[in-house]
Lab assay of single mutants.
Amino acid sequence: DIIVVALYDYEAIHHEDLSFQKGDQMVVLEESGEWWKARSLATRKEGYIPSNYVARVDS
């Protein structure tokens, strides 16, 4: 799995977006363009995230 960590807070604009806080970790489910589908490890919610707001966690 690709794990990313939030670099900034993000408040969902559309209902399919995923809100998150700086430091939150998410599993990337699908990478396509600038918006990635991800699942929050904390809340288990899924939605689209702006890929420029996150960084990959080296395992």
Rank of each mutant, 00 (worst) to 15 (best):
Val5Ile: 13
Glu16Tyr: 14
Trp36Thr: 07
Arg39Trp: 09
Thr43Met: 03
Asn52Phe: 10
Ala55Asp: 07
Phe20Ser: 00
Ser32Lys: 14
Leu29Val: 08
Tyr48Pro: 00
Glu11Asn: 11
Ile13His: 11
Leu7Ser: 02
Val4Lys: 01
Leu29Gln: 05
Leu7Phe: 03
Val4Asn: 00
Arg39Met: 11
His14Gly: 14
Lys37Asn: 05
Ile2Pro: 08
Thr43Gly: 06
Gly23Glu: 03
Gly47Trp: 03
Gly33Trp: 04
Leu18Met: 10
Tyr10Gln: 01
Ile13Gln: 13
Leu41Pro: 04
Asn52Lys: 13
Glu30His: 10
Arg44Ala: 13
Ser32Arg: 14
Leu29Ser: 05
Ser59Ile: 13
Lys22His: 05
Ala55Asn: 07
Ile13Lys: 13
Leu41Asp: 03
Ser40His: 15
Ser40Arg: 07
Asp9His: 07
Lys22Met: 08
Glu46Gly: 03
Glu16Ile: 08
His14Met: 08
Val27Leu: 14
Gln21Ala: 11
Glu46Arg: 04
Ser59Trp: 12
Gly47Phe: 02
Trp36Pro: 03
Leu7Pro: 00
Asp1Thr: 13
Arg44Tyr: 14
Ser51Asn: 07
Ile3His: 06
Tyr10His: 06
Ile49Gln: 00
Ser51Gln: 09
Trp36Asp: 01
Asp58Trp: 08
Gly33Lys: 05
Glu16Ser: 12
Asp1Leu: 15
Asp17Gly: 15
Glu30Phe: 10
Val57Ile: 14
Val27Gln: 10
Gly47Val: 03
Pro50Asp: 06
Ser32Cys: 15
Glu11Pro: 06
Arg56Gln: 08
Val4Met: 05
Glu16Asn: 14
Glu30Cys: 15
Ile49Ser: 00
Glu30Thr: 10
Gly33Phe: 05
Val28Phe: 03
Asp9Val: 04
Arg56Ile: 12
Ala12Phe: 02
Glu30Trp: 11
Gly23Met: 03
Val4Gly: 00
Phe20Pro: 00
Tyr48Lys: 09
Ala38Met: 04
Lys37Thr: 05
Ser51Leu: 06
Leu29Asp: 03
Asp58Asn: 13
Tyr8Asn: 06
Ala42Lys: 14
Glu11Lys: 12
Lys22Val: 09
Gly33Thr: 06
Tyr10Asn: 02
Gly23Gln: 02
Val28Trp: 02
Ala6Tyr: 01
Trp35Lys: 12
Ala42Tyr: 08
Gln25Asp: 03
Tyr53Ser: 08
Ala55Thr: 13
Val5Ala: 04
Asp9Gln: 05
Tyr10Pro: 00
Val4Ile: 08
Ala12Arg: 05
Ala38Ser: 03
Leu18Pro: 01
Lys45Gln: 12
Val4Arg: 02
Asp9Gly: 07
Ala6Asn: 00
Lys22Ala: 11
Thr43Pro: 02
Gly33Met: 04
Lys37Arg: 14
Tyr10Leu: 03
Met26Val: 02
Trp35Arg: 14
Val28Ser: 01
Gly23Trp: 05
Ala55Val: 14
Val54Met: 05
Ile49Arg: 00
Ala6Ser: 03
Arg44Ile: 06
Asp17Ser: 10
His14Cys: 14
Ile2Val: 13
His14Arg: 13
Ile49Cys: 02
Met26Trp: 02
Asp17Asn: 11
Gly33Cys: 09
Tyr8Arg: 14
Lys45Asp: 09
Ile13Met: 11
Leu41Tyr: 06
Pro50Trp: 07
Arg56Glu: 06
Thr43Trp: 03
Arg39Phe: 11
Ala55His: 09
Lys45Pro: 00
Lys22Asp: 02
Gln25Asn: 08
Ser32Gln: 12
Tyr10Phe: 14
Arg44Phe: 15
Ser59Lys: 11
Ser40Val: 08
Gly47His: 00
Asp9Tyr: 04
Trp35Cys: 09
Glu11Ser: 10
Glu30Tyr: 10
Asp17Trp: 14
Glu16Pro: 04
Ile13Val: 13
Val5Arg: 06
Lys45Arg: 11
Ser19Asn: 06
Val28Gln: 01
Glu16Met: 11
Val57Thr: 09
Asn52His: 13
Ile2Cys: 12
Ser40Gly: 04
Ser59Thr: 13
Met26Thr: 00
Arg44His: 15
Asn52Val: 09
Lys22Pro: 03
Ala55Gln: 13
Tyr10Ala: 01
Leu18Ser: 00
Leu7Gln: 05
Arg39His: 07
Met26Pro: 01
Ala12Asp: 02
Ile49Asp: 01
Trp36Cys: 09
Val54Asn: 00
Pro50Ala: 03
Val57Met: 11
Gln21Gly: 07
Arg44Glu: 12
Ala55Tyr: 09
Gly33Pro: 05
Lys37Ala: 05
Val57Pro: 07
Ala6Glu: 00
Trp35Asn: 06
Leu29Arg: 04
Glu46Leu: 08
Tyr8Cys: 15
Glu46Trp: 07
Ile3Ser: 03
Asp1Phe: 14
Arg39Ile: 10
Met26Ile: 06
Ser32His: 14
Asp9Thr: 09
Glu16Phe: 14
Asp17Phe: 15
Ala38Glu: 01
Glu34Ser: 13
Leu18His: 02
Val5Leu: 07
Val57Glu: 07
Ile2His: 12
Glu31Phe: 15
Gln21Ile: 10
Asp9Ala: 08
Gly23Lys: 02
Gly47Tyr: 01
